[in-house]
C-alpha cells in the first residue's frame, strides 16, 4: 500500500507550512533569523529549479519536456532569484540588523547552507525512491 507515502507527503507539507509561517513571523518582526530562514528558502528554490532544468536536460531531453521544464522551472528560479537579490538590498539588510555583515560573507554563508540543504534533499529523494522501488 502507498499509505505511508501519503502520510510522509502530508507530513512534509505540514512541516513546510510551519517553516514558512516561522519565516513570515520572523520577517514581520525584523528578526535576523527571519532573514536567514526566508532568504535560505528562496535561495533553495533557485537551486532546486536550476537543478530541475539540468536533470530534465540530461535525463529526458525531448522537446516537449524541455520546453515545459524551462518555462516552469526557469520562471520560478528567476522570480526566487530576484527576491534573493531584493533581500540583499541595503535597506532590507539594515531592517534585519545585518548591515555589519559584508555582502560577500552573507552570500558565502547562504550558498553553503543552501548547497548543504540540496545535498541532504538529494540523499533523501534517493532513499525514498529506493524504498518505493523495493
Amino acid at each position: 500500500t502507498l499509505s505511508w507515502v501519503i502520510f510522509l507527503t502530508s507530513g512534509i507539507v505540514f512541516i513546510l507550512a510551519g517553516l514558512i509561517l516561522a519565516a513570515a513571523i520572523g520577517m514581520w518582526i525584523g528578526a535576523t533569523w527571519g532573514w536567514w530562514l526566508g532568504t535560505t528558502g528562496y535561495a533553495f528554490s533557485v537551486v532546486l529549479n536550476v537543478a530541475g532544468m539540468m536533470i530534465v536536460t540530461v535525463m529526458n531531453p525531448q522537446a516537449e519536456a524541455l520546453s515545459s521544464s524551462y518555462i516552469k522551472n526557469g520562471t520560478r528560479a528567476f522570480i526566487a532569484g530576484l527576491i534573493v537579490l531584493y533581500l540583499f538590498q541595503d535597506n532590507v539588510l539594515a531592517y534585519f540588523r545585518l548591515q555589519n555583515w559584508s555582502k560577500g560573507k552573507l552570500f558565502g554563508v547562504l550558498a553553503g547552507i543552501t548547497l548543504g540543504l540540496y545535498a541532504a534533499h538529494f540523499l533523501i529523494v534517493q532513499i525514498v525512491f529506493a524504498a518505493l522501488v523495493v
Binding site: 501519503i6 505540514f14 507550512a17 514558512i20 513570515a24 520577517m27 514581520w28 525584523g30 531592517y95 540588523r97
Partner: peptide, 30 residues
Amino acid sequence: VKRPIGVSILVVLLGITVLLCIFICVNILS
C-alpha cells in the same frame, strides 16, 4: 529602522503559502 514595503509584501505572500500548504495537507489526508 522602518519595515521595507517589499518585506511586507513577502510576508503576505508567505502567509498565503502557509494557508495553501494546510489546504493541501487536509486534502491529501481526506
